[in-house]
Nucleic acid binder design. Structure first.
Lengths: 216, 216, 216, 216
DNA sequence: GATGAATGAGGATTCATTCAT
DNA sequence: TATGAATGAATCCTCATTCAT
């Protein structure tokens, strides 16, 4: 965790620093990310960095935490109701996830990197992954109870599929909608009809599959 | 490309080197991967490395190529028939993919990293990603022709979903089957009934979705 | 340019460093000169060098600049008068040049090397050479106006001859006067009668040539 | 000296090698010149080099010797007659020198470099320089005997001036005549009227100086 | 609390030379 | 005699971290 000195910093200076550090860790490996570059860009003294953070790893973990928190906040804003429709809820989640991805692309990038790289303690990663899967698994179980999800669906496997799709969907949308009106300018992606349509289709695929349904 | 010198090496020495280099690039960023460490572990002189490869990047690209080739070989062993059942073909692909992942986990890891990191020329990545998506999109179009895939399915989106699932499935299986009998010892994963079952279920989900089908 | 850090150094440390760097670049090519050797001799950490200078070239150019400045200072101390006698002015210049050569033999050596080697940007060299020649050409033109230089003298060619003689004279003097009383100990060379005599003779040769003048 | 194996080489291979080595040492410091590059360009095995030469320095000294010999041959082709006119003889020399410079620019460059750098044993250089000066000094003494050179001319100093001018004249001509018809194509420079004119003027300056001769 | 100079290990790469074939 | 792989020291440069001011 950052030292108290960091939190005593004026808010704008602190945020500026985080902004720059974020960019550095989004563009680089943990090892390749350079404290020297960060402090140079942030315009603070090299020594000051070590007044704020224990060391490089301390900063890194803090950024990861920040990402996790922001994401959690977004998701918790769409709380699951006991009786709510599971697919409707998934839709909310998807929207939240895509929004997060698009508004915090760098936080996401750090998260991806952390997951890919083996530089983090394995339990850290396993835990994160597990968290996501358990969440979806719970959701699917609930769907079974409600009768909206088939009883013979393997909950763990379905959770895995949901989790990877949710994880990658933001990127896919960025690719697909690149050049469209209204993208990349910080406004919500949902001004775009296409984004909504895509999410509809994803959900439809998840619910009914791609198979040809028997007519009649 | 490696220099001829490298291919003139005794097979065991060459393979030992590749094994070690693979591990290094699987565990590290391109930038963080260390030639010094590789040669130290491989027990060769630092100068010798440069008899074998042009430079660090040369080795890196060679490893990526190796992965691509191995993968291509696996997949081309399951050629698509014009009239063949699309879902049957997907099953073959899935098996090939999982097999690759499980028998070359480090090659896969390097591939993942290459895709994540921004260290590669962007066109290289876009091309690879595009290739994968086009492949699946073609498959889905074929399914539509055969009548096994619903006509209103968005081909591009479905291809995206297939591609991320195929990409991540190997990892999922490793996680899920870890500790099971017969895994991680080099034998084919398919001795395990569970692996087959999982693939069945994935395909089923893709075809029919997780939704409860209307009884009647 | 060196970084501020370098100028913040205690004068003695800074001068010691320059002294050592000077010796290294006087004895070696740009490429052959070794930062490692310099820092070892100067007793500073390798990393510290890069606190002072951007890189090897930065140091090199700084040394060249130093030489140019010192030389310019010397020469500007003997400003040309519009109406002054050209040969008298040449004598002053010669004295300044020889003085510089003898008091900064290593700076000179670096300058020579820079001119000889192809390691510098060509425009840099051409410019320097051109500068020197234009200077002398102007002087000769002035002499023509004054009537002290023959009108049919090729200005460019004469400038070339002046420039190479001025360039090499210092060395010649060092050779010729080596071992004489008063040389090489930092005192002005002009305590030595011989040095003055030599310059007189050079000027005489330039003005009247070595040819036998017709008696009468 | 090269080993016998070198002289046993087929003439074309040997000359090709020398050509390439020449270029390398003309473009680089002794230390910066790279045997690796030479053998690569010459298409011979690295090990073979050490069959031909003791080491890098062996090759270097051999090239210097070659240059000295070629030059000596040129000059000896214009032998001094006891009774000949000194200035006429100088003209022959000058022509020979310029010719050498223009037809062997790389040998010259190596020679320059050798003189500049301190990498050679000092006695080697002093000897070469001394040789040149003694030669000119002898010539001037002869001129005095003939009455064509003024008796009060300092022989050593005049020899110095001749020697630097002769040394640099080739370069000057290359600069000045660059772009003229007939230069740089391997034909003799003396097809060009200008080159002859320049040499005339140089000699005139040396003989009569640039000073305005008293009219009448 | 802030500063920024000092440090030395570690990075990739090049090189002349040796030696077994 | 020819080869070319092996070697390890040397090159410049970057980095995270410390510490005196």
């Amino acid at each position: 965790m950052p030292k108290q000195t960091f939190f005593n910093l004026p808010a704008d200076k602190r945020e500026n620093f985080l902004h720059i550090a974020l960019a550095e860790f989004a563009d680089n490996d943990f090892k390749s990310a350079s404290i020297s570059r960060i402090v140079a860009k942030a315009g603070i003294a090299k020594g000051s960095f070590y007044q704020y953070f224990e060391n490089k790893e301390d900063l890194y973990r803090y950024l990861l935490d920040l990402g996790a928190q922001e994401k959690a906040a977004l998701f918790s804003a769409a709380p699951i109701g006991q009786e709510g429709d599971v697919f409707a809820y998934l839709r909310q989640l998807m929207r939240a996830g895509v929004t997060f991805e698009l508004s915090n692309p760098r936080l996401s990038q750090i998260g991806y990197r952390a997951v890919q790289s083996n530089s983090l303690p394995p339990e850290f990663l396993a835990q994160a992954r597990e968290g996501s899967r358990q969440f979806f698994a719970g959701l699917i179980a609930q769907g079974k109870n409600q009768g909206s999800v088939a009883a013979d669906v393997d909950e763990d496997l379905a959770a895995f599929i949901f989790s990877v799709i949710f994880t990658e969907l933001g990127r896919y949308m960025m690719d697909r909608l690149a050049g469209d009106e209204g993208w990349g300018d910080g406004r919500s992606p949902f001004h775009s009809v296409t984004a909504e349509t895509i999410m509809d289709q994803v959900l439809h695929l998840l619910e009914f599959g791609i198979g040809q349904r028997e007519q009649a």
